[in-house]
Nucleic acid binder design. Sequence first.
DNA 1: CTGGAAGACGAACAGTGTTCGTCTTCCTAG
DNA 2: CTAGGAAGACGAACACTGTTCGTCTTCCAG
Lengths: 191, 191
Amino acid sequence: MVYTKKIDRETLVIVASELLEQEGIDAVSMRRLAQALDVRASSLYHHFAEKSALLNAVAEKGLHSLAAELEQARVGSGMDAHQQLRALGMAYREWALLHPQLYLLLFGSTPVEEQPSPLGRTVSAPMLAIATQLVGEQKAAAATQALWAFVHGFVMLELAGQMQVGVPVEGFLLGLEMLAEGLDNHNINTF
Amino acid sequence: MVYTKKIDRETLVIVASELLEQEGIDAVSMRRLAQALDVRASSLYHHFAEKSALLNAVAEKGLHSLAAELEQARVGSGMDAHQQLRALGMAYREWALLHPQLYLLLFGSTPVEEQPSPLGRTVSAPMLAIATQLVGEQKAAAATQALWAFVHGFVMLELAGQMQVGVPVEGFLLGLEMLAEGLDNHNINTF
DNA sequence: CTGGAAGACGAACAGTGTTCGTCTTCCTAG
DNA sequence: CTAGGAAGACGAACACTGTTCGTCTTCCAG
């Protein structure tokens, strides 16, 4: 028999991402992926030691996509911190709603990544920049956590179908506004 | 052979909850549950048509436990809305950190429950009461979503290991504070 | 007392992640 | 140019999963 087919790591990750987004995490099985690439499942293990390693690669790729989108939204929205915050929030939400399965893979359950920091640091870096403008360096870390928590929680609830219709967009902006106001007041009260 | 053993629905749910919390969702398999109850796996299907139905029962039980805890925290914290909010937030976070696997089952991924409303309504009802006090009935729904989003997001990030050590408790209270201030200001500005 | 419902059993099916020994392709060192 | 070895595809197998089905047993109600 002739062994022609040849798989490379990157296309494997791409195919996995597409399958994930189109049919959900349960559809992403090694045999299914192999079939899509016209290869046997066992061959995939020459490129990733285990399924979780492949999913990690998918997650990492998605993470960078999200981070790039956020940074772009931040720098492309002027100097005003409030406006930056609103732009970043909208971009975050839009990305998550555009790639729901990928977002759930990233943050949905027990960490698919190992280290606590790099995953979050990458995505929260743009928020830290804005938070620093709003409340100064001292409180920036805590403010970033608060901002990220709100945005992340809102998106997760939305993805889980726990948002009453009609509320989503306005509620999101309102919440962001309230947090920003709170941050401002806190800033004033502290310095 | 003698068929003595007898399983009842409720203990099945309890055993499943314990196994979930102690060994994680991956350990909860029909055969594993059956073994814990000294029964064959196929017998479980006389009590739940499918595994997801069993998990739904586990989730519902957890949901009521959480809701009860929240309501208790609210009514047991005086008349001041801000104080109620802080108490409810702390109770929410404590419950989630105490039953992480159960919390992830409830909210971690694609809805395990079918309807969008009842799951969330049960847990967000106490928040709605507080939000109404803070911003009035008109904006209460949106404010509730914002509050819930923050608390939920914070807990999810904490469970995912995305919180820098040291920040958690203070960051949580700070964020709650900021949201409350934002709500107050919004209240003043609007009426 | 007897029949039927409820429920436990064991075997089986399709699907999963993963491992292993074999075969083939291709690049590189002599 | 040729030999060898690394990289990689293959197919079978293992242990596990959720789920179905036909058979057997227990027990309660008419």
